[in-house]
Design a protein around this nucleic acid. Structure first.
Lengths: 116, 116
DNA sequence: TTCATATTACAATAATACTTGAAATATCAT
DNA sequence: ATGATATTTCAAGTATTATTGTAATATGAA
């Protein structure tokens, strides 16, 4: 992931409705969920759902597949993970103090305990 | 960190200039750096720097302190770490597959290897 | 006090993002 | 074909965010 992709992903996550969609799709896992069901779950109108889920899809955070009349959306854990890696490693240069401030670790430097 | 704080932090990070500022301040560490020096480092005008660094400060990602004529800004690793924790634990419910897709781990569930 | 430096605040504009409702498309069932 | 369902597309309006240049404030030095 490069800087531009990271900015797109961060902007996509920086909205209540979209964060709710992500949360919902995380729970649904590999089964995913249809646009309509997602809309009911997060209490958003059809066009609102299309608007926000398109932003998530453009950022690579979710994928879609048409199944009969419905379109099924699934979370892309890989892209979410890539964003976390980018923030810790590329953006924050694997800084020791960041790992000291949260319970997130990387391959390059693993702390022993955590102060969550 | 709650959802609203996470959205503010994500929105603050979702901009090229602000991401550059973060990167710069990570390198500067506890010494921090003045508004003017930050401006030179990221090639942004004074008022641009004030605008963007204010957004980062509102989101709690940086702190400030006046020292004589300058204002010194420092990164808040704690808030950055809190955001990472929020994404992994609250938003993504510590989902196994997220940890499988990146080299980020949490206290609650630590994977053995990584597929970075 | 006067001047130079460092930074912020403000106002005007431009650019993006969001919301809403109506119309269009795609698929399936009859 | 016709009608019903699921979703997207579009257009209009509103709101938010970003940029630019200028003015104001705060501090220190002469």
């Amino acid at each position: 992931m490069n800087e531009s992709q990271a900015i797109d992903a961060l902007a996509a996550l920086a909205h209540q409705t979209r964060l709710q969609i992500i949360r919902h799709l995380v729970v649904k896992g590999q089964n995913g969920d249809s646009a309509g069901e997602i809309g009911s779950a997060v209490d958003a109108s059809p066009s609102k759902i299309t608007f926000h889920i398109s932003a998530l899809e453009r950022a690579g955070l979710v994928g879609s597949e048409r199944v009969s009349r419905q379109i099924i959306y699934r979370i892309h854990f890989q892209q979410l993970g890539a964003l976390l890696n980018y923030l810790v490693e590329d953006c924050c240069a694997n800084h020791q103090e960041l790992r000291g401030c949260c319970n997130v670790e990387t391959d390059n430097c693993r702390s022993s305990g955590s102060d969550k």
